[in-house]
Computed example of a mutant assay.
Amino acid sequence: MDALPIMFDPVPGHACAAALAILLLSSAWRKLADREVFRATVELYDLLPAAAVGAFAGLFPLLEAAAGVVVVLRPDGPWMLLPLAVLGLSTAAILINVLRGRSNLECGCGGDSQPRLSWALVMRNGALLGGVLVAAAVDNGRPLVWVDFLSVAALTLALAGLYAALNQLLANQPESMQTGSLS
Rank of each mutant, 00 (worst) to 15 (best):
A18M: 14
L20S: 04
A21C: 05
I22R: 04
L23V: 13
L24W: 00
S27D: 08
K31P: 00
L32E: 11
A33L: 03
F38I: 01
T41F: 00
L44F: 08
L44A: 15
Y45K: 07
D46L: 09
P49G: 08
A50D: 15
A52D: 04
V53G: 12
V53D: 13
A55K: 09
P61F: 06
L63C: 15
A66W: 07
V69P: 06
V69G: 12
V70Y: 02
R74C: 06
R74S: 07
D76L: 14
G77A: 04
G77C: 03
W79N: 09
L82H: 13
A85W: 10
L87T: 04
L87K: 05
A92L: 06
A93R: 03
I94V: 14
I94F: 05
I94H: 02
L95W: 14
L95M: 13
S103G: 10
S103T: 15
L105S: 06
G108I: 02
G110A: 05
D112M: 06
S113F: 13
L117F: 05
W119M: 13
W119G: 11
M123E: 09
R124C: 03
R124V: 04
N125L: 00
N125T: 01
L129C: 13
L129Q: 09
G131S: 09
V132F: 12
V134L: 11
A136C: 06
